[in-house]
Write a protein that binds this DNA or RNA. Structure first.
Lengths: 221, 221
DNA sequence: TATCAATATGACAAGTTTGTGAAAAAGGTT
DNA sequence: AACCTTTTTCACAAACTTGTCATATTGATA
């Protein structure tokens, strides 16, 4: 899930509550352009988009996202309650909106309703990578037509690396994204998971997942 | 599209405007029970449901519809604007709500947003699947011409998995879709039902219904 | 090349998830 | 009420995952 909200306090609160409610993965950006870039770079089921953002307002971000093929749900946050504004938001491609100030229960209820609705028309997402084919909907990995069964952690790690191909992910970031910022595990756990993943995909030579000494891990472009 | 609204004037107005806007087919009922019966009898993309209806109020109709497998969109009309009421509506399984009095433009915008989100592949009445033939109207299952009798729960589960072939369904989603958002049953119930279904279709080896550890269940494409 | 920190490796224990069968609970029918 | 079917729960077993640790290996640097 992606949250685009420039108010630091509200942003922190929402992220905190979402995690508490069991939302696996929340990214938070504070500017319109960032929201746009993140949304098209990664894959989000739902985007919570503030109406007013510095550097690219919510409505135009929403419009451009729809134009460029983003098919997940979009929930707009707005301080305006005029009918015309609501209509404008929905016309821009938002699926729902919530007027500030709102209660967190209502946000949760709306998110739930949205993802219930979003669930069906979600696009197949298949990432091809050399001899591999990663299917994010079926949670499967194929190598030359042969299925490789990954554990959840292994799949998360591969997915994360693949989403960031060409970029080196530091251990800090990996820990943050997979185990969560408040996880209580040692860095060694990452190395161990990398090891397991490498073994499963037959990468003992570290040709596929590269170690960048002193920095982290990467899958090259 | 189904409209459940007891106010004659408002009902006529909405039907009129919907037709004018090009909505092909609008059914209009004025009582809760009728709404319930109509909705389960035919297939509607969207149901517009007034919160207060004679003979079965909107919230309970909504709840029962979800419980009994209605998966289209539901838009609630309400005169109430308290946060708690809104949450109640969404919790009951509505996808959206609109507070009266509203402008027709907003209704149209919301309906548009809803049907964009709802758009689902047309449901086949008879689904063929290997040696099996599933009839979704008569709720029967044939294997090589031999009938296998499934209980309602078993059938719902098979149907849900089959509708989502190639996708892994998490326990959360299965619970939501079969038992309903507010079901008071443990996750183990799902496992138990899977077990029963597997036994009936002769899938003790889990070749047909696969377990994706840590994620959920799936029928492969 | 010697040294040191970073990373890899494999084994293990603890923790989770799923399978299984029996039994209880809930409904429906006669 | 007695009977039947379906649904749900429960307890335990089995299978699998995960994180940690001790130790080995590697690579950078002096």
């Amino acid at each position: 899930m992606l949250l685009a909200e420039d108010d630091i306090h509200l942003g922190e609160l929402i992220v905190h509550l979402l995690k508490k409610k069991g939302v696996e993965h929340v990214d938070w950006v504070q500017e319109g352009e960032d929201a746009y870039d993140y949304a098209l770079a990664s894959f989000y089921d739902v985007i919570i988009l503030d109406w007013m953002l510095p550097n690219g307002d919510g409505v135009s971000v929403c419009q451009r996202l729809r134009k460029n093929g983003y098919h997940g749900a979009i929930l707009m946050l707005t301080a305006k309650d005029a009918v015309q504004d609501r209509v404008e938001g929905l016309e821009a491609g938002a699926d729902d909106y919530l007027v500030k100030p709102f209660e967190i229960d209502e946000l949760m209820a709306r998110l739930k309703a949205l993802s219930r609705r979003t669930f069906a028309p979600i696009q197949e997402e298949i990432v091809r990578w050399g001899a591999f084919e990663v299917n994010r909907t079926s949670h499967t990995l194929m190598k030359n037509g042969q299925q490789i069964i990954l554990t959840p952690r292994e799949f998360q790690l591969l997915d994360l690396l693949l989403q960031n191909r060409g970029r080196v992910l530091t251990r800090d970031i990996i820990l943050d994204r997979i185990w969560g910022y408040d996880a209580d595990v040692s860095m060694k756990t990452i190395d161990a998971t990398v090891k397991l993943l490498r073994k499963k995909i037959g990468d003992e030579q570290q040709q596929l997942i590269k170690t960048v000494r002193g920095v982290g891990y990467t899958i090259e472009k």
